[in-house]
Design a protein around this nucleic acid. Sequence first.
DNA 1: TAATCGTATTGACCTTCATCAAGCACCAAT
DNA 2: ATTGGTGCTTGATGAAGGTCAATACGATTA
Lengths: 248, 248
Amino acid sequence: MSAAREIIPIHALKAVCSTCSLQELCLPLGLAQEEMVQLDDAINQRMPVRRGEALFRLGDAFRSLYAVRTGFFKTVVVSEDGREQVTGFHMAGELMGLDAFGTDQHGCTAIALEDCEVCELPYHRLENLALEIPALNRHLYKLMSREIIRDQGAMLLLGNMRAEERLAVFLLNLSQRMAARGFSSRQFVLRMTREEIGSYLGMKLETVSRTFSRFQQDGWIKVQGKQIEVLDLAAIKQLVSGCIGLQH
Amino acid sequence: MSAAREIIPIHALKAVCSTCSLQELCLPLGLAQEEMVQLDDAINQRMPVRRGEALFRLGDAFRSLYAVRTGFFKTVVVSEDGREQVTGFHMAGELMGLDAFGTDQHGCTAIALEDCEVCELPYHRLENLALEIPALNRHLYKLMSREIIRDQGAMLLLGNMRAEERLAVFLLNLSQRMAARGFSSRQFVLRMTREEIGSYLGMKLETVSRTFSRFQQDGWIKVQGKQIEVLDLAAIKQLVSGCIGLQH
DNA sequence: TAATCGTATTGACCTTCATCAAGCACCAAT
DNA sequence: ATTGGTGCTTGATGAAGGTCAATACGATTA
């Protein structure tokens, strides 16, 4: 984490929410223009994180929230013996670290799946600002409750669905999030491995691979390694309908 | 919910955090005495909820957080066709509704598994008070992040563990929470059915039953319907050690 | 006390997915 | 071009747990 910091030419890299294209997805959502300018001052800088690097690790002192500016992260929990479980994937405009907000330690590890840029939101400044700007405070509550609901959705998925349903939900979710960011919802590149998908969805990498292959045989998608093309969105949605808890 | 309200003799039932025995587990944790007195004013009343009744339902307008005073709740997500997935069990001193905090709709349904009493914490009063008392605001953040971490723990459980490991984690967790409330950690009564346990743990009720039986054969516990006695805590812990993500 | 309904237990069988294993594709470095 | 590494695909096999079904238990009501 400190390694990532040292290589930044800090000058001229000031992050500014008030002109950021991710406003509508990110922390400033719903703030008035002048409140957003106040928020600008609370944001530290724009930090690059290189592929494979950890932005923060489980157990690190919690000092800041991070917003993804560009790139793609996974968050994981790692056991003593090195096994890991993926708890989420995070793309532009999404916040990481909410699971530690208000506490003193990070509850997971965030790793960049490609070269990324993040905005750092120091906790103490954010907390003070939130006390001044009720709309910001409320928005922080809202972001956290959304995270809780997101996790509960994942619980349903892990608890109730079969492998193909899980993968269908995963694809739909990814597709929607791409669309919300102005990218194609029909064609995209998976930034994570089959193993990471499997860890997130509670299945083995072989099962992920087989299920992708089956979807392809059925003509629902086209898979070429990490390149995904969605051919029959309706069929995928059909598979998922009937499953409960789809509040993404 | 309104039905539950009407039957309260509101007079003389004012809830008071500053004298409540659950202080150390509940919302006021960490507040100064005078701050707690302010909180007293923000708490509406002590509400009874009878067994089987819903305290709030998914989609209800979000107006309040609720703290369990006595009794036992489950929270569930219900699909259109009536199937339900249990997302958590809640006992004295625990808050419900955090998944909707700062939003306008409840994200789940809370149902009393026995006759209960709850404290109602109206959102607008809590929000205003939090802006005045930074310690309270921070504590709310902390409670929400704890909920996120709790859910992530459940994700790990559902994604990685086998049936017997899940049930072991469940028993340990329940046992600890009983102990934290001054009850026996070795002997307690399950308030939920096998089916509800199964829903929460992502397995069928038959598997729950079989696994209980196996634990009993191994001499780890004694089961008589809903009555549980823990005989060999070490063995149960042993089974669970090696599993990752045990931050309860 | 008997009857009834919801809940729990246990058995037999079958599906789904994990495991083990082999081979392939792709990239990077030499 | 060769080598090695990493990630992906596919097949064969088996174990865990789901499904179906029969029965028993236990609390509430008649």
